[in-house]
């Protein structure tokens, strides 16, 4: 992970993360970005649960392109609020989307298309505060439409249950906008729970989210998505999200949280070891 982040995610990159929505969020990659003190990132994702909040609080982020930033089961995201309302630890720019419009933007990127027309967001103020969206008239029907221009992330990071050494990565469960985000990106970092032989991938090629030619790096790490779940591997650690919510209301609380779980931990293996029995209790997730 250290090498993949160092090599493929320089300062100023646009990075798509958390594109399967609530599950399979690449928390370990986000934590490595924080440890390497990455700066001026643009974060792209529909909803990020608390990963975007952590990167914002750590000062890594200049811009957020998202439909929703918060703590899904606990409420508002404190670092996001501090940054947007008070410029702490720095001012950030926010480009508002809905889940559909950001999915269409990434799909346009994946297709090599300039934009995709839609009926969503007509009448929403998102059309006014997001300067990239444009209202237009459909040249065929004469009806009003919204044009959603393509988003092409520099890097997309995905978590999958398994991958082979070439980077063919398979994800079970809902994909959210992960497939579009991976295909739209210039580079993809695959973080897989398990390394398998290419023949195993070939037994179920419909489950492949990222094909090898799109993968720039493969990182094998157990528990990379914790506290979010990974179908068939581990459950969501609800209490971890709620503890984070309670603990990060003030900036000092966030700093303490960060040094305990991110900067004070060298890598994901040490993080999982620190979770201890809590980690083992999560490992009975229902299989698909």
């Amino acid at each position: 992970m250290r090498d993949a982040i160092a090599r493929f995610v320089p300062d100023g990159s646009s990075v798509a993360l958390g594109c399967a929505l609530e599950p399979a969020i690449p928390f370990s990659a986000g934590h490595e970005l924080i440890r390497q003190r990455r700066r001026d990132l643009t974060l792209i994702g529909p909803i990020s649960d608390i990963l975007f909040d952590q990167l914002i609080g750590a000062g890594c982020v200049a811009k957020v392109v998202a439909a929703w930033v918060g703590n899904v089961s606990a409420g508002l995201a404190h670092c996001y609020r501090r940054a947007r309302e008070q410029g702490i630890p720095r001012r950030i720019e926010v480009v508002d989307h809905s889940n559909f419009s950001i999915g269409l933007a990434l799909l346009a990127g994946a297709l090599g298309a300039p934009y995709i027309p839609t009926k969503t967001l007509l009448g929403s103020d998102i059309c006014h505060t997001n300067p990239t969206l444009r209202e237009a008239t459909d040249p065929f029907s004469g009806e009003r439409i919204v044009l959603v221009p393509a988003i092409r992330p520099n890097v997309t990071i995905v978590v999958a249950q398994r991958a082979d050494a070439d980077g063919n990565a398979q994800l079970w469960g809902p994909w959210g906008v992960s497939e579009e985000a991976a295909l739209a990106a210039n580079r993809v970092i695959v973080v897989a729970d398990e390394l398998v032989d290419g023949d195993v991938i070939g037994e179920d090629p419909n489950a492949t989210l990222v094909p090898a030619p799109k993968a720039s790096a493969v990182v094998i790490e157990t528990g990379a998505a914790h506290p979010s779940p990974l179908q068939g591997r581990y459950r969501r650690d609800h209490e971890f999200f709620h503890e984070y919510h309670r603990g990060t209301r003030a900036m000092q609380g966030f700093d303490a949280w960060l040094s305990e779980w991110v900067t004070g931990v060298p890598d994901r293996a040490a993080y999982i070891a620190k979770l201890g029995a809590r980690w083992t209790s999560l490992r009975d997730a229902p299989r698909v």
């Binding site: 399967a20 929505l21 609530e22 599950p23 529909p46 649960d49 899904v72 089961s73 889940n99 559909f100 999915g103 269409l104 799909l107 839609t118 009926k119 969503t120 079970w172 469960g173 809902p174 994909w175 959210g176 906008v177 992960s178 497939e179 579009e180 979010s228 779940p229 179908q231 068939g232 459950r235 969501r236 609800h238 999200f241 997730a285 229902p286 299989r287 698909v288």
Partner: peptide, 27 residues
Amino acid sequence: LYTMGDPPNVAGARWCTRTVNVMGLLQ
């Protein structure tokens, strides 16, 4: 469920797909 992405919401589902597909039904 605490979130719609919790594993119990996926186990026994009839369709797991991409966001744009379900948003397409909506549109």
